[in-house]
Design a protein around this nucleic acid. Structure first.
Length: 919
RNA sequence: GCGCGCGUAGCUCAGCGGUAGAGCACUACGUUGACAUCGUAGGGGUCACUGGUUCGAUCCCAGUCGUGCGCACCA
């Protein structure tokens, strides 16, 4: 074995080995276990969030596979309509092409080409991460059968009246020129202005002032509304106002929506371009005047002067014209919420169009019930509140998008505009008894990507066919996903799953936090703080990292700042940490929190941990080299052997519990402590003298224990660190007579029995060793210098243990001789340094080594601490209410503490006064 | 406005009714053949604040301050 762990050399080899042997496919077994991979965008690449999520899913998958479950991790990719179309359009733009020039079919061909090129990247990345997904059954949302399922669902919902076409206001992205659902619009507070405009009264009695944040919309005004019963405006009712810049008059209406306290108490009403106004318009039967084109330029419904102007140019012009006309009362600075498309970043406009909608409430009801009843359980549980909050106020879902890339809506129109829905054109004709000579054209629009994603858990398993996979794995076991898509995806899967299979799509939803950078910032290309998981695995030099972060920016002016920050945070680039270190890091970060900060120091620490495990294994292999090791009799195992075996069993139980509760952080910590703090720090060190001084049976027992515990650790850790565990296991397992091809199909450790006696023995031994070490360190005695030791106050058990652990103790504490002082021994201890182990005092003669004054001050420090603790205990026990009300066990424990502290205080005081008497 | 979080050691985070924990960072010492990607020992916290419940509160309850997120919003 190499002297240090080198992940680069082995990872690819093991992954290929596993995949070639088809061990990622379900292996059979009684209990099915299934996880659906949230399908990543086919044209993207995996970021840290994906790597984190994939790690969690792979841990669960490998954990269950090792338990013999029939385990499926279903992979696949999503066609991501808007995102993908944007990427391909940008690529075409670089060649000076535009999709509208090339036509729909040619454009879609381009997307497919790009999909084939790009989709491979993601699967390559997932392979590097060690993801044990069922590659053979990987699916894509645009696959023919999945597309057929989408169509079938659409037709079926339409038949039931749950999908309808309607003309109403939608969120319109004027750059992408498509409708968006509510969820795809992000509103944020921005600086704006409030323009106060005078609307003259038609009766000539002055004017009223209305305020607006979007002056250009006045061209679509159809009324002015006031609050009912607002005294200031009672005389206005029934009159009309002149609409400035237009040759129109507006009625004054009353509506409860208007807040008389806000602004002037007068609101202009523009039903075609404001959601609230739209509702008011409907209530009052007002006309709707649409003033915008698809690209948000002004259309022919406005005065000629403004036609064709972009919305913001028009705003400027209108304000100027109002100013000239003396109709602009004032302009105020104003903070307001600006809605932007989540993809384009453009300000979206409420826009009146025909779109397809899902009537969602009938679907939502059973989906709410499923979570209420516990049929679907959120982890952490609290997310169910967020889910209910949204589901109880759910709005109809706009599912049509004016895009070319996606599932085409299966609806056809005749020349009169009648709509015919069917599985395909022939089916539509059949259903509606249309003769072949009726001309039909298909709806141009495609479906929201999330519509097909909502079906993912069952369509990937073969639905609508009643396949064996569907039968076996549906409902799936757990959904692992980020809370950011709880509405987009989780809620919709539950609704669609129940609707079309009659069952929930999964019984548990593990919601993890979102990966952020070391400053707590969200990682994004535009901020220039993204990390590529592969760069953490393979390493990257600083210059490459800088150029990677600064090329292809949407805002190139950010480049210098990004470069500066990158050079500061990664002055030496990023070294190659390997997949396992990264995975272990992700596991340790998987707390219940919402934000997960990723820091290099963390992964570095776990890289070191890999090296620790590697070297421990190297040690074990060196010890067994050239020896035959056989299974020892139980009686041949020493206390230290029994101790480490017992610690191992404890850890197994702990780790399993944590995995079952999705506490990967606690699981990884438990493993880390077992490996480093117990196996390496103590057992390996204790095994050295045992292998040196023990008889042949004891040596054999120790070697066997080294192998057994290490082999168990490897299986315990394999779900988190698949590569290093396989690499070492392949060398270790044969030594134990295990003949198997891979660790990944070995049984996951089951907790066994605990050995309390051995644990108590070793706890005592550790105290002894640590006592001596502390004296050495605090008095600056050379670590390597052998020291004599005197013991006083030894109890029978101490003597018995000394008999058994003499060699181990002396070796680890570097003690050259031990003398037990009896009550009547004349040897005095006043010139000794002292350490306390229970009732016993460890004494190290200082003559010629060090001034006793130093020891006195050291002891005084300890005494002070003991006295504080003693007072605390005394205080508690002196409180009658405590003794009367606290549970018996707590009181007993407190009494023991009191005794221990009292004993130590006495011992220390005695020693101090002895030493002080010397002077 | 409604809902959900968070505030614990210099930093990042566990813990959550019975004497405060980890990793990293820090200090001192140390290359004895598994490992310097290391070892040994150590320092460091009125657990945001104020009240309440309790024999006992970092933990439960109420409020305050700070901070983050989601949803809905007033022209």
């Amino acid at each position: 074995m190499d002297k240090s762990y080198n992940p680069g050399g082995i990872e690819q080899r093991w992954y290929n080995y596993w995949e070639e042997n088809d061990w990622f496919s379900p292996q059979g077994g009684e209990k099915p276990y299934c996880i659906m991979l949230p399908p990543p965008n086919v044209t993207g690449t995996l970021h840290m969030g994906h790597a984190f999520q994939d790690t969690v899913m792979d841990i669960l998958t490998r954990y269950h596979r090792m338990q013999g479950d029939n385990t499926l991790w279903q992979p696949g990719m999503d066609h991501a309509g808007i995102a993908t179309q944007m990427v391909v359009e940008r690529r075409l733009a670089a060649e000076g092409k535009h999709r509208r020039d090339m036509g729909r079919d040619a454009f879609v061909d381009e997307v497919w080409k790009w999909k084939d090129e790009s989709g491979g990247k993601i699967s390559k990345q997932m392979r590097h991460l060690g993801a044990s997904v069922d590659w053979k059954n990987s699916r894509f949302t645009m696959d023919e059968d999945l597309s057929d399922a989408v169509t079938k669902v659409f037709v079926s919902l339409h038949e039931e009246g749950l999908i309808y076409r309607g003309k109403r206001l939608v969120n319109w992205d004027p750059v992408l020129r498509t409708a968006l659902s509510d969820l795809e619009v992000l509103s944020e507070e921005e600086n704006g202005k409030l323009w106060h405009i005078r609307y003259p009264r038609r009766d000539g009695k002055g004017y009223v002032i209305v305020a607006t944040t979007r002056p250009e919309t006045m061209l679509g005004d159809v009324a002015v509304a006031v609050s009912p019963g607002d005294d200031r405006y009672t005389d206005l009712l029934g009159t009309e106002l002149e609409l400035p810049l237009c040759d129109r008059y507006l009625p004054v209406i009353e509506d409860d929506y208007v807040d008389s306290e806000f602004g002037t108490g007068c609101v202009k009403i523009t039903p075609a371009h404001d959601f609230n106004d739209y509702d008011i318009g409907k209530r009052h039967d007002l006309p709707i005047i649409n003033i915008l084109n698809e690209d948000a330029s002004l259309n022919d419904n406005v005065p000629e002067a403004y036609r064709g102007l972009d919305r913001f140019a028009a705003r400027k012009q209108i304000v100027a014209d109002l100013e000239v006309a003396g109709l602009l009362e004032k302009i105020e600075d104003h903070r307001l919420m600006i809605p932007r498309g989540d993809r384009s970043g453009e300000i979206v406009e409420p826009y009146l169009t025909d779109q397809w909608y899902v009537q969602i409430e009938p679907l939502a009801k059973p989906a709410i019930a499923a979570v209420e009843s516990g049929e679907v359980r959120f982890v952490p549980e609290n997310w169910s509140k967020t889910y209910f909050e949204w589901m109880n106020n759910i709005q109809d879902w706009c599912i049509s998008r004016q895009l070319w890339w996606g599932h085409r809506i299966p609806a056809w129109y005749d020349n009169e505009g009648n709509i015919y829905v069917g599985l395909d054109e022939a089916d539509a004709r059949k259903r509606h008894q249309l003769s072949a000579n009726v001309e039909l054209r298909q709806d141009e629009d495609v479906l929201d990507t999330w519509f097909s994603s909502a079906l993912w858990p069952f369509t990937t398993l073969g639905w609508p066919e009643k396949t064996e996979r569907l039968e076996t794995f549906y409902p799936t076991s757990v959904l692992v996903t980020g809370f950011d898509i709880i509405f987009f995806w989780v809620a919709r899967m539950i609704m669609m799953g129940i609707k079309f299979t009659g069952k929930v799509p999964f019984t548990e939803v593990y919601m993890h936090g979102l990966i952020r950078d070391s400053q707590g910032q969200k990682m994004s290309k535009s901020k220039g703080n993204v990390l590529d998981p592969l760069d953490l695995i393979h390493g990257i030099d600083l210059e490459s990292l800088v150029s990677k972060r600064t090329t292809g920016l949407m805002q190139p002016q950010m480049a210098p700042e990004i470069e500066r920050a990158t050079r500061k945070e990664f002055p030496d680039g990023i070294s190659a940490f390997g997949t396992d270190a990264m995975r272990f890091t992700f596991a340790s970060l998987a707390t219940n929190g919402r934000d997960i900060r990723f820091e290099l120091g963390r992964i570095e620490g776990y890289r070191n941990f890999c090296n620790k495990l590697w070297n421990a294994s190297r040690y074990v292999l060196m010890q067994i080299d050239g020896e035959t090791t056989s299974k020892p009799q139980a009686s041949e195992l020493s206390a230290i052997d029994n101790w480490i075996l017992s610690r191992f069993e404890r850890t197994v139980a702990e780790v399993r519990g944590h995995f079952d509760n999705y506490r990967f952080d606690l699981a990884s910590q438990a493993i880390y402590e077992l490996v480093w703090d117990e196996f390496c720090d103590w057992y390996l060190e204790l095994s050295k003298p045992q292998l040196k001084y023990g008889d042949s049976a004891a040596k054999n027992a120790t070697r066997h224990t080294l192998l057994t515990v290490l082999e168990g650790i490897l299986r315990l850790i394999h779900p988190v660190m698949p590569y290093i565990s396989e690499e070492i296991w392949q060398r270790i397992a044969p030594e134990l007579g295990i003949k198997a091809e891979t660790i990944m199909l070995q049984p996951y450790p089951q907790p066994g029995s605990i050995n309390n006696a051995a644990e108590a023995d070793i706890a005592w031994l550790k105290l002894m060793i640590q006592g001596v070490r502390r004296i050495r360190s605090e008095l600056n005695l050379p670590p390597g210098k052998p020291l004599p030791l005197l013991l006083s106050g030894t109890q029978d058990e101490d003597k018995a243990r000394l008999g058994r652990f003499n060699e181990l103790f002396c070796a680890l504490a570097r003690i050259e001789s031990i003398e037990i002082l009896d009550e009547d021994t004349t040897r005095s201890s006043e010139d000794c340094a002292v350490a306390l182990v229970e009732k016993m005092q460890l004494l190290i003669p200082l003559t010629g080594l060090i001034d006793t004054a130093e020891e006195v001050s050291r002891l005084k420090k300890q005494l002070q601490k003991e006295q504080i603790d003693l007072q605390k205990s005394k205080g508690k026990l002196g409180n009658k209410n405590f003794v009367a009300n606290a549970p018996e066990a707590v009181v007993v424990q407190e009494r023991e503490r009191l005794q221990t502290h009292q004993l130590k205080v006495d011992q220390l005081q005695e020693q101090i006064s002895k030493m002080e008497a010397l002077d």
